[in-house]
Design a protein around this nucleic acid. Structure first.
Length: 598
DNA sequence: CTCACTACTTAGGAGATGCGCG
DNA sequence: CGCGCATCTCCTAAGTAGTGAG
């Protein structure tokens, strides 16, 4: 009966959503849908605005296994004395013990947060006893965990197969849903297990307890008509609703930030694919009006209104440097990171002259995921002058753009072009950069073609500042490759000598083996090819040391550019996209002709 | 305008998987 | 056939962007 009420509430909510949906519909009218829909059998009914599905059925999320108490021979000690913890306290103690090898378990913020949350899980008596984290000895718990990891690693083939089959069974049961007559893969069908929260960078909440999610915390979203997922035995769902204006199948509220987590479809699903295609179509539309927009913000740099000037400078950065929008964030809730609109005075330094360039802006700030953005950029004089103006009478901690935020900026952008927001510039600039770079490069053999492709991909990754930690084994594997190259070089020299010898013999005394010269020639050629391939690989790997290509490939580069390139260059799509990428971009692989222009 | 809330995309790292080589 | 490394998959945090109330 409660669930009935909930769905009534939902119906009312939907009515108030009507207005929103009108706006969305404008957007889809701007972009013409038909061609791709036919290509992909997406032709079935196009629903009224905002409706994402007509039928949705699934088995609900998969819950992690319950906590298994410690075996009798593993103990926790406080102040040197054996202490048998309550189940709840023990579980959390084990979370900490498992992290003892990580550097962050030594950080004060992490330890303080952990200890505070751990004590909340303790019984009254435990809380009285355990007052100092330093006096806690998790040694045996830690050792047990390490032994378990080791044991898992040393499993026999048969044991591994058993585990694999069990996992497959879970995927079969929970990993798929039925959405409008199609069986679709679910992206994340597992409820996130409890543990200690570790944010990125200097996160103020690191070490806090991320609580176990119960079915009573979970909202299920599915069709009224179909089967409703059955909660685990002895449990009930928080709510079952039937909202077909959203794409999620289940959700719960996470206790660290209080944000909502969703169970959603896999990237290869029709719903996600259409959205992805739409994203690139909007970016292509920007291509057709970007000149006007650029002229406009150049004019705005001279505006009488400070707000307009700030908007223009921000837009200049977003366009030229592919900066993120930079929503404001709640202080103390997350690590201190910024994007364009939230840049502070301390994040830029102005240089009238630097390394032979005039009007250089030096950026140094932490962006998303605490990845450092460091760049020295010559800018046009008008931008430089404006920045000087914005900096006047401000302290390092003050906002650079005090009259601007992302909502003001996006409102302006959507007035210039329907669907235009700050992030569209990133998509547009990434994709157009790839297309340009690929045009400039021509190579003969496949290895070189792929190096060219990777270089173009890399140019985009650098633009978008997609970094990675250098792989732990980088130096070693680089040295190994170099050794292989050296060995091959020697082999090549030898092969050449042998060829010469063979030629000489053939000339002087007529050969005992008439094919010998041919064979030696082939050996030299093979050797040269292998050497080239390795050298190309070495270059590629070196240039890629700290650059992550995956993110741009997956999220910013219109796959049709890549597919068209493959067709033109006669490179197999498999060479640039792995299986899951091919799945995600199936729509582009199906529909793209060699003459595609972004 | 601000704030809270929601829904969705984008992100790097850890661990699992698998592949080439001797 | 096992080993060591590269690649891929999974995980979930951290963004963007929109809505509506006050």
């Amino acid at each position: 009966h409660k669930q009935e009420e909930e769905s009534d509430r939902e119906a009312e909510k939907k009515k108030s959503k009507k207005k929103t949906e009108k706006v969305n519909s404008c957007l889809s009218q701007v972009i013409c849908l038909p061609s791709i829909m036919l290509a992909l059998k997406w032709e079935e009914e196009k629903y009224e605005d905002g409706v994402k599905w007509k039928f949705l059925e699934h088995n609900g999320p998969y819950f992690p296994a319950n906590y298994e108490p410690l075996p009798d021979n593993v103990h926790f000690y406080y102040n040197g004395k054996k202490v048998k913890l309550s189940l709840a306290a023990e579980e959390v103690a084990l979370f900490f013990a498992q992290m003892l090898d990580h550097e962050y378990s030594t950080k004060k913020v992490f330890r303080d947060n952990f200890f505070k949350d751990w004590r909340k899980e303790m019984t009254h008596e435990e809380r009285l006893l355990i007052q100092d984290l330093e006096k806690c000895d998790f040694g045996e718990l830690h050792a047990m965990h390490k032994a378990k990891v080791e044991a898992r690693k040393n499993m026999t083939k048969e044991e591994k197969l058993v585990v694999k089959e069990a996992n497959q069974k879970i995927v079969d049961e929970y990993g798929y849903c039925l959405l409008d007559h199609h069986k679709e893969r679910i992206g994340n069908f597992k409820i996130e297990p409890p543990g200690l929260f570790r944010g990125r960078g200097e996160h103020p909440k690191q070490g806090m307890l991320k609580k176990r999610i119960q079915p009573e915390d979970v909202i299920i979203n599915c069709s009224k008509e179909g089967r409703i997922p059955i909660p685990p035995a002895g449990h009930r769902w928080k709510e079952v609703r039937h909202d077909n204006t959203v794409t999620w199948l289940a959700s719960w509220t996470e206790n660290i930030q209080g944000s909502i987590k969703y169970i959603m479809l896999n990237a290869n699903s029709k719903l996600k694919g259409e959205k992805d295609w739409e994203k690139y179509e909007i970016a292509r539309k920007l291509k057709s009006c970007v000149d006007d927009i650029r002229n406009q913000y150049m004019q705005d740099l001279k505006s009488k209104h400070m707000g307009t000037r700030q908007r223009a400078v921000a837009l200049y950065f977003i366009d030229k440097l592919a900066l993120r929008a930079g929503n404001e964030k709640e202080e103390g809730e997350t690590a201190d990171t910024v994007g364009c609109c939230s840049l502070r005075v301390e994040h830029i330094t102005l240089h009238e002259l630097l390394d032979g360039s005039e009007c250089v802006v030096e950026f140094d700030f932490l962006g998303k995921d605490c990845i450092r953005y460091y760049n020295k950029v010559p800018v046009i004089r008008k931008v430089f002058k404006n920045l000087k103006l914005f900096l006047e009478n401000k302290q390092p901690g003050d906002e650079l753009f005090d009259r601007l935020n992302t909502s003001v900026l996006n409102k302006h952008l959507s007035s210039l072009m329907p669907g235009l927001t700050a992030k569209v510039f990133r998509t547009y600039n990434a994709s157009i950069t790839l297309q340009q770079q690929l045009k400039e490069l021509t190579n003969s053999n496949v290895a070189e073609k792929l190096l060219s492709y990777n270089r173009a991909n890399r140019a985009v990754a650098i633009l978008c500042n997609h970094q990675r930690a250098p792989p732990k084994t980088f130096d070693q594997s680089m040295a190994n490759l170099q050794a292989k190259i050296d060995a091959r070089k020697e082999q090549l020299a030898l092969a050449k000598t042998e060829l010469k010898q063979a030629k000489k013999e053939a000339k002087t005394k007529g050969s005992s083996d008439p094919k010998l010269v041919e064979r030696k020639k082939a050996a030299v050629k093979r050797c040269e090819e292998q050497l080239l391939k390795m050298e190309v690989q070495a270059t590629d790997r070196e240039e890629n040391k700290q650059i992550a290509l995956g993110t741009s490939k997956l999220n910013y580069l219109d796959p049709r550019i890549s597919v068209a390139w493959c067709k033109n260059m006669e490179v197999l799509v498999d060479k640039i996209y792995n299986k899951s990428q091919r799945d995600k971009f199936a729509w582009a692989i199906d529909m793209t002709e060699a003459d595609f222009e972004f």
